[in-house]
Write a protein that binds this DNA or RNA. Structure first.
Length: 320
RNA sequence: CGCGGGGUAGAGCAGUUUGGUAGCUCGUCGGGCUCAUAACCCGGAGGCCGGAGGUUCAAAUCCUCCCCCCGCAA
């Protein structure tokens, strides 16, 4: 059986910018996007103003109806979705758990775009954790949404090689775009009836949670390469940091430097405008290349040290 | 009305409480030392102190309003 793009009635669900390329793709390819669901506007940012979500903004630009429910699983949300009578549900970082009742509404089910090579890196922050763990490769997976988190049957996957110095933020953008491609291919196969479902191998599944509050403290008591990965994996959000004199110095970029001598991890080995800010780690030193003092803008360590001094020998504390 | 920090030479900061010739580190330019240097020494240039009013003999500094940047928290 064959279907035409314009006959496939889709409801798209997404919240942060991860879903933007996918939603754009749907429109450009001529799919029939009936409506968009996104998280409610929330007080956010400085001043606590009500801010629309990125997906909502795009949907409005595209003149698509937007639905925002605190909890889509409540009767109101379910009813709204039933009234829309979609053939297919597509989610991309929507941020709400779908119930079986909801999954049963669309005739063709629900497809989720996930930023990892499932079954690896299930969970809410697969991109950041892949970088923190120093993965060389990650990717995007489309899957049939099931009740268990990120555990549905795999449809299509695209791999992505992570450059050695890429930050989580950069990877996020790359995978957002890649996700649109993966989704396009998935839908094309769906339309011509060649889409195959592959159950996930539960034995290979890994799960990584959302960052907890306060997460981001740099532990100098470990390999400097691990520290480097930690820093780029938390860049730009939430940002790695060092506590110094009750000030939270955010760190956005570091380089590794091998040393023969042993120093106390966390000890400041150099801190001047010439050599930059060098801190001892477990098996070498970490040169902090980009940082930010609270209330100030991001700067290089050298510029930073032009105006402030950190005594050599200071030992940055490690988290408990 | 969520809490808070900040806007001063190209860069990063001090000075503001206790008004009165604008200072530090780096960069830059010139000179010197040196086999040599991103090292060291000497010297110079470069600021309407975020903007607009006000107080004052005098405002970076005190008062009022505005603009911009950022941290926390969400």
């Amino acid at each position: 059986m064959q279907m035409d793009k314009s006959d496939l009635k889709i409801v798209f669900m997404g919240t942060p910018s991860f879903g933007l390329p996918s939603l754009k793709m749907l429109m450009e390819e001529g799919f029939f996007v009936r409506a968009v669901f996104s998280q409610p506007d929330r007080k956010a940012g400085r001043g606590h103003r009500m801010l629309p979500t990125p997906v909502k903004l795009l949907a409005q630009e595209l003149d698509l109806p937007v639905y925002q429910f605190d909890k889509i699983r409540m009767p109101q949300g379910v009813e709204a979705l039933k009234d829309l009578a979609p053939d297919l549900l597509i989610t991309a970082a929507y941020g709400q758990i779908l119930t079986q009742e909801i999954l049963d509404i669309p005739k063709l089910g629900c497809i989720n775009v996930h930023a990892s090579l499932l079954p690896k890196y299930r969970g809410a922050a697969p991109i950041q954790w892949a970088v923190i763990n120093g993965e060389k490769k990650t990717g995007v997976t489309t899957m049939m949404t099931a009740l268990a988190l990120d555990a549905g049957d795999i449809l299509e996957r695209d791999e992505f090689l992570i450059p050695n110095d890429m930050t989580a933020g950069e990877l996020y953008d790359s995978l957002s775009g890649l996700g649109a491609n993966t989704l396009r291919r998935t839908l094309e196969k769906l339309l011509v009836g060649t889409l195959e479902r592959t159950p996930q191998n539960e034995d290979e599944a890994t799960y990584f949670p959302m960052f907890k509050k306060g997460f981001g403290a740099i532990d100098f008591n470990q390999d400097c390469e691990k520290i480097r990965n930690f820093v780029r994996g938390t860049n730009p959000q939430p940002g790695a940091y060092i506590l110094y004199d009750c000030h939270k110095i955010k760190v956005f970029r570091v380089e590794c430097e091998k040393t023969d001598k042993f120093y106390k991890p966390g000890e400041v080995l150099a801190a001047n405008a010439k050599s930059g800010l060098v801190v001892a780690a477990q098996n070498g030193a970490v040169v902090i290349r980009e940082l930010q003092w609270p209330g100030k803008c991001k700067t290089s360590d050298r510029d930073f040290l032009c105006g402030r001094s950190i005594p050599v020998g200071t030992v940055f504390g490690s988290p408990l």
